[in-house]
């Protein structure tokens, strides 16, 4: 870990300005991913701005009947929030499927969205990785790829986004609210927030330098059965091989987002349309054009089967 200077942010604007003025500065919130990566020198900031004291830890109802979740709300608190449990159960379920109790007590809403991939080659600084070191090559292609992506992958990168929460956020049509260093506020739909790797896998979101996430808001609840099914090797404290988050209405219509298959939580309108026809149709639409490796092609079948189980559970 490189040496860094440290400051506590006094305001969102000051924090954003501070990061914008220093290309080697980073915000730190829960720190559970950033410090992990700093110890390995995958992240090498020279200045950290602690944003924990900015009062962004509230969950409030919005005037349109939705919910506004402060960027610094801890995963534990978000999962336990009464409204989330009642109206956005998918989010609660996804959160508690992730990490461990200790990590969820620190991890924040915005930090969870900004989690970086768990590709083992990204994590080993001896190995080429386009995401870590642009232009160095992708070691996962032709290497160990069982955990990695099958959708939206490129020749440069087959990494996945590891978050469970983001899958639920995607199904819930969340909107990410930000402040830019110049004070401009913008709202980014979750579907637009994460990028596909293309030939710039090191650029993972649409955030600009210094742009600061203040909140994530959810539209009014849509009802339906909320089911999050995470599939993994061990029973807990593991990243998903695949995960399926779905909201299914009594008439069989609904929406589905999938984790563990792409560089972002994966959802397609065309697949939602197919949902009433069943898992085969919906997952066929969702994973059309998949580009799996020999080691992770099982994910195609696994998504379909898991979605099948989710649909049965919703009907049951």
């Amino acid at each position: 870990m490189r040496a860094f200077t440290f400051e506590r942010a006094s305001s969102v604007e000051a924090a954003a300005k501070s990061v914008a003025s220093n290309p080697d500065a980073r915000f730190i919130a829960g720190g559970t991913n950033l410090l992990d990566l700093m110890k390995l020198e995958i992240e090498t900031p020279t200045h950290l701005i602690d944003v924990n004291g900015l009062g962004l830890d509230k969950i409030e109802a919005t005037t349109d009947g939705g919910l506004r979740i402060g960027a610094l709300v801890r995963n534990t608190d978000l999962a336990a929030h009464e409204t989330v449990r009642r109206d956005y159960g998918l989010l609660s379920r996804a959160l508690v499927a992730g990490a461990s109790g200790q990590l969820r007590n620190k991890a924040t809403t915005s930090g969870n969205l900004l989690q970086r991939t768990r590709c083992p080659y990204f994590y080993d600084t001896n190995q080429p990785c386009n995401k870590r070191q642009p232009g160095s090559g992708c070691s996962a292609l032709g290497g160990i790829s069982r955990q990695l992506g099958v959708m939206g992958v490129s020749e440069a990168c087959i990494a996945t986004h590891p978050s469970d929460m983001a899958v639920a956020m995607r199904a819930l049509d969340a909107v990410v609210e930000t402040v830019k260093p110049d004070g401009t506020i913008r709202s980014v739909k979750i579907e637009d927030f994460h990028r596909l790797p293309g030939d710039t896998p090191h650029i993972e979101t649409v955030l600009e330098r210094g742009e600061f996430i203040t909140a994530v808001s959810l539209p009014p609840p849509v009802g339906g059965r909320h089911i999050y099914r995470k599939v993994r090797d061990r029973a807990s404290y593991a990243f998903a091989l695949v995960s399926v988050g779905a909201i299914i209405q009594s008439d069989g219509k609904g929406r589905v987002a999938v984790g563990g298959v792409a560089h972002k939580p994966w959802r397609l309108e065309a697949a939602d349309v197919e949902l009433p026809k069943g898992a085969k149709a919906a997952s066929g639409a969702l994973l059309a054009g998949s580009r799996p490796t020999e080691q992770n092609k099982f994910k195609i079948d696994l998504v379909e089967r898991t979605l099948g189980a989710v649909i049965s559970e919703a009907r049951g």
């Binding site: 730190i28 992990d36 200790q102």
Partner: peptide, 26 residues
């Protein structure tokens, strides 16, 4: 030292966390 085992669990203000993934200065 990377939040992968839980051996460093302590209670901070009554809440359990991994003490390896947080800075003393915070």
């Amino acid at each position: 030292d990377h939040g992968q085992c839980g051996a460093c669990t302590v209670l901070v203000n009554g809440v359990r966390i991994n003490s390896c993934l947080t800075l003393a200065v915070m």
